[in-house]
Design a protein around this nucleic acid. Sequence first.
DNA 1: ATGGTAGTACAACTA
Length: 262
Amino acid sequence: MPFTLATWNINSVRLRAPLVEKLLREEGPDVLCLQECKSPVDKIPLEGFQALGYTHMVARGQKGYNGVAILSKLPIRDVGDKDFAALGHARHVAGQLENGVIIHNFYVPAGGDKPDRAVNEKFGQKLDYLSEMRDWFYAGRPEKSILVGDLNIAPLDDDVWDHKKMLKVVSHTPIEVEALGAAQDAGGFVDVTRRDVPEGKLYSWWSYRARDWDEADKGRRLDHVWATPDISNAAHSSRVLRAARGWEQPSDHAPVFATFDL
DNA sequence: ATGGTAGTACAACTA
């Protein structure tokens, strides 16, 4: 049975509950993975989601920062979380559907401004987080698994508006791209979005600070959908819902979709 | 080299 999945950094699930409901109503993914919920789990506004048929949720939260949630029309079982790099942050949770597919929902640390761990502790934490992801997936050898989320790295030249200008900007430095690639390879994950959309610029995030985000279009592809090779061929119809970046009081991220025929 | 915007929560941190 095919199911459609979306991932969206919502930047406060409480403030933007109406936008989540708009997405669920208009696009109707079977599963929606959210990041930066910025809410304790018990304060996520579930009523409106449930009324639209999303009666299942697997989530981790904390007050004010981070937070990840998987909303689902399909039954989903909580299969745990891992505190990579021991930050004590709610940045990962995993759920398993009844067809056996495991969904990992990640919010990788942004990493601060300076791409140098000697002067910027946050950058070091980001690299540590990625290397622990690599080690964990290497040890765990995931199967029938989908990994989504705000990975806070745009790995390919066409994942940023200007590759050369971005080489020293956190999210596109070679050391981050390498660390993300190592984590991806350790789990054997296929970048489903780029398998489906191999050519051309593709972004999922545009800064709030641009005067006109749409006109300037200085975006980055920070949000990803990966799958293990045993199910990656079942994926199709990947897309970014760019229009959501233009909704009223938007998140700075747009949702990324993929459909799996499983 | 700097500052531009946004959310949480009410000062200052994070992105």
